[in-house]
Simulated scan of single mutants.
Amino acid sequence: MLYRIFSCCTLVAALGLTAPAIAAANTDHKTVTKSSAKKSTAAVSKAKTSKAAKTSKTAKKSKVVSKAVAKSSNKQITSRAIANARKDVSVSRALAMSSTLDNPGVQSVGVLVLNEQNGEIMYEKNADSLTPIASITKLMTAMVTLDAQLPLNELLTISQADVDTLKNTSSRLTIGTTLTRGELLLLALMASENRAAAALARTFPAGQAAFIRKMNEKAQSLGMRNSRFYDSTGLTPNNISTPRELALMVKAAHRYPEIHDFTTSSEYSFISNQSGRSMAFHNTNPLVKEVDWNIGVSKTGFINEAGRCLVMQATINGTPVVIVLLDSSGKYTRIGDAQRVRKWIETTSTSRLRAG
């Protein structure tokens, strides 16, 4: 028994612990335990808070992603809607441009289709609207030149006065080029050469001002009450007329054999007295080369203010017609419109025959 007590005391002494120290140690152990418990609780609480925060962030991210997906989806839906709307518009335009028995489906702003045989207006659109007519003017230039009965074999020379200073258009007829009056008339009508048309007015015996006056007098005599001419080329937007009045001018021009020949020629070549080289000029209306077209008169025109224009006299399905197409947008629209008018006349003529 004494040995056991001694052993315990020896062990305690060896560890350097006294009774109070042991008590203190026990107290410290409890404190550490409590502190650890508190720390553990705090850690758990912090972990929960962190988890909650992460959950919240994840939720927010999820919401952001959802919004992004929704936005992307909305964009896709919007894009599809726009595409469908555009498709609908294209279809509507196509339907609007399609030919019917009452409408050839032309796109030109000003239109008149006249049956030259009986005077019937087959189709019209903005037929009485005044508009610049560009180089359609040159048909009047040709009639005034021919009415004056000036020698067509007389040699005329292009001068500085014939150069366009209004629109600054170019020309292959260089200053000093000498051609006959007939050749200049041909180039003015077929190739719409502005310097050629300017030279015709400048070399008029009574002068250029008198030539312009004759143009307006001729217009009045044809019943073109609202038409006005200020130059022989059509470069000025002040040269104005209407589809209805231009039909009168085309009908009158068709009575001149030279205008028929010159406006329907596909090309013309000559040797330049300036360069000694051959120069080839072509018709501005490609339809004159088409074998299935029977064209009596043709003239194109273009300046920005007038748009692209085309007037023709042609025989379609055995019927002589005058076609006036003004202010077409796009390089080929006026030609396409002429084709549509012809097809429309052929179709409606067949329909009328069947109905009869």
Rank of each mutant, 00 (worst) to 15 (best):
S135D: 00
A280C: 05
A25D: 00
M143S: 01
A197L: 01
I345S: 03
R342Y: 00
A191F: 03
M97W: 01
T242S: 12
L152M: 10
N194W: 00
I323Q: 03
M249F: 14
K60R: 14
R213H: 03
S328G: 12
R244Q: 07
E154S: 10
R354W: 08
M190D: 04
M190F: 07
E305H: 07
S241L: 05
I175G: 01
V32W: 13
L15K: 14
L187G: 00
Q339V: 15
V113C: 03
T137Q: 01
S129L: 11
N115D: 06
D327H: 13
G110C: 07
V91E: 07
N283M: 13
E346M: 12
Q274S: 14
S108N: 11
K289Q: 11
A198Y: 02
L101R: 09
A219E: 02
A47E: 01
T333R: 06
G330D: 02
A188W: 03
F6M: 12
K299H: 10
I271T: 12
E245L: 10
L326H: 05
Y123V: 06
A306L: 02
T169P: 00
V250N: 01
E116N: 14
I259G: 09
S56D: 11
R352A: 08
A14C: 02
N26A: 08
L152F: 04
Q274V: 11
N294E: 15
D164A: 08
A83Q: 14
L150G: 12
I323W: 02
D162C: 06
S159T: 15
F302R: 03
V250R: 03
A19K: 07
E120Q: 13
A25Y: 09
L326K: 04
E154R: 15
F204Q: 05
I345C: 02
L146N: 05
L101F: 14
L2R: 12
S40N: 08
A148L: 08
P205I: 13
N118I: 04
V109P: 14
N103Q: 06
A253Y: 02
N294D: 15
I335K: 04
A209K: 12
S269I: 09
L325P: 05
N304S: 15
V89A: 07
T55C: 07
E183S: 13
T350S: 12
V106W: 06
M279W: 08
T177Q: 15
S62A: 14
A24V: 12
L2S: 05
V324H: 00
K87Q: 04
G119H: 02
A127V: 15
E245F: 14
E258V: 09
L11G: 10
T347S: 08
G307N: 04
A134P: 10
V111H: 09
A19C: 12
